[in-house]
Amino acid sequence: MGCNLYHKIFTTLFLVGPTTSRRFLFGTAKILQSRKSDGQVAQKDQHRSILEEVLIKEQQKPTTFAGKTAEKAQNTFLYVIVAGSIGLLGTFAYFLFEEFFAQDSPQYIFSKALDLVRSDYRCADLFGNTIKGFGEETSRGRRRHVAHHKYEKDGNERIRVKFHLKGDLGEGTCQVEKEKKDGEWIYRFLFVETKGGHPRTTHILIDNREE
């Protein structure tokens, strides 16, 4: 029975074209209803390729009550699987959307801060005209993860984000902190620091701190 189920999913999802995918959406049982008599089957079979002959095995329509119930149960189970998968995909999509567009997500802050750094003349003096921004490097050579720390001080939520900068003239880091005040995330500070050379040069772009 299990093998049968997988075969059904496989054929409906991967092997057949849009017409049968549509049939899948409206119920797998319709595949079986579509051929009433042997003559129709024979006529239809003329258009099938050898590969389809071998791979697509049509089942007989169940005639008994138990068989019909089993068929319905199987279809319901498939629908539940599809609905669950769609829900799971929706959850992931939501988190992805939030990562890109939420005010307090590290990616969003990184993106906005990098724009500020790029439009700053002093930063262009320090690093060069084209500044590359990236996060922490993993062992696989990916640098997408931006280091961040969320904490709470004096009853206000804060998030500090640190990322790396690299230009033609030099490298450095940028540290940003945002604070949630009256429901709005505002910059607390934003500064860049060169890396490597001594002494380090610090250039402060934004400083809204208050003791």
Binding site: H149, K150, Y151, Q175, F189, F191, I204, R209, E210, E211
Partner: peptide, 15 residues
């Protein structure tokens, strides 16, 4: 809960 961070030393004292 995540500990509160001090301000970076690179910055001047807060106003």
């Amino acid at each position: 809960p995540p500990e509160a961070l001090e301000d970076p030393r690179a910055l001047p004292p807060a106003k």
